[in-house]
Every structure is written in C-alpha cells, then in structure tokens.
Amino acid sequence: MSLLRRSGQQALQALLELAEAPQQWRSVNQIAAAQDLPAPMLEQLLLQLRRAGLVEARRGRLGGYRLQREPAKIAVAEVLSAVGAEIALIHGETEEPNLAEQQVLRSMARRLQRAMERELMQFNLEELLFDLRSCRESLSGTGGLMLG
C-alpha cells in the first residue's frame, strides 16, 4: 500500500536519479531506463518539475535534465505539489450515528494531514537519497550499512 500517487512516486524516482549526480545532464531515456519508468510519462513529469523550478532543461545531444538546486534544498512536499500528488489522508463517514464522534474523527484527520504536510516540508531530497543509498548498501551482498 502506498500513500503516494503514481505521479508522485515517479517524480521522486526521477529526482533521486538526478540527485545521484546533480551536475550531470541526463536525458529522459537515460532516467527512464535507470528507474524503469515509461519515458512519455516521465517527460510530462519532468516538464512539470521544470515549471516548478526543481529541474532545468537543456536541448541538444549533450542536453537533458538536471537538478536546479542542491538536493538538500528540494523538499519532498515541493516535488509532490509540482506534479499534483500531495499526500492526503483518506477518510470516510463512520458507521456511528454519533455526530460528536464524527466531528472528533474529522478533526483528528485534519490534524494528521497538517502534521504530514509539515514533515514533508522538512524532509528533503538529500535525506531521501541517503535513505536510498543506505537501503541499497544494506541489501548488497557485502552486508554493509551506511550510517549518518
């Protein structure tokens, strides 16, 4: 189960790929192949990320996309917002006829939503990249573990 829409997951995957070498220009096809993403969908996401000021684009044989800012200065919330994939708690009406309980549950859901939004504004691409590298290292045959 995932809290993120597919567009949010794919945008984060693409930006993580770019964050691995932030100064290097990468084509849509290179990013798509590395992350096993469909190139047409990725192209649309990268255009949205460019409009949001998260990546820059350059045409030509040596062109492509790269991060516009350092990974530490790109909040996960910005990425999700750029592609219209904000995290939202899903909650419906309760079966309980008690109006007070429904109000309390709605209030709790709003508080949790605000807490998630605050956390996502603090959580940046550099931290996500560190988690990715740590996970890769722990899953490798060497059994290593990266610590911060």
Score class of each variant (00 low, 15 high):
S2V: 04
S2H: 05
R6T: 01
S7H: 09
A11E: 12
Q13T: 07
Q13F: 11
A14F: 03
L15N: 04
L16W: 02
E17V: 08
P22A: 07
R26T: 07
S27L: 03
V28R: 14
N29P: 00
Q30N: 12
A33R: 13
A34V: 09
P38M: 04
A39V: 03
P40A: 12
M41F: 00
L42Y: 01
L42K: 05
E43T: 15
Q44T: 02
L46R: 09
R51I: 11
G53E: 00
L54Q: 04
V55G: 07
E56G: 03
G60V: 06
R61F: 11
R61T: 13
L62N: 14
R66W: 10
R66P: 08
L67W: 09
L67Q: 10
E70H: 08
P71L: 10
A72C: 01
K73R: 12
E78V: 03
S81C: 07
S81K: 07
G84S: 11
A85P: 10
A85D: 01
E86K: 14
I87M: 06
I87N: 04
G92E: 14
G92Q: 15
E96M: 05
P97R: 09
P97C: 04
L105D: 09
M108V: 14
R110F: 02
R111C: 00
L112G: 09
L112M: 15
R114M: 06
E117I: 03
M121G: 07
E126A: 15
F130I: 01
D131V: 14
L132R: 15
L132G: 00
C135A: 08
L139V: 01
G141K: 09
G141Q: 10
G143A: 04
M146Q: 13
M146T: 09
L147N: 04
L147I: 07
G148N: 10
G148W: 05
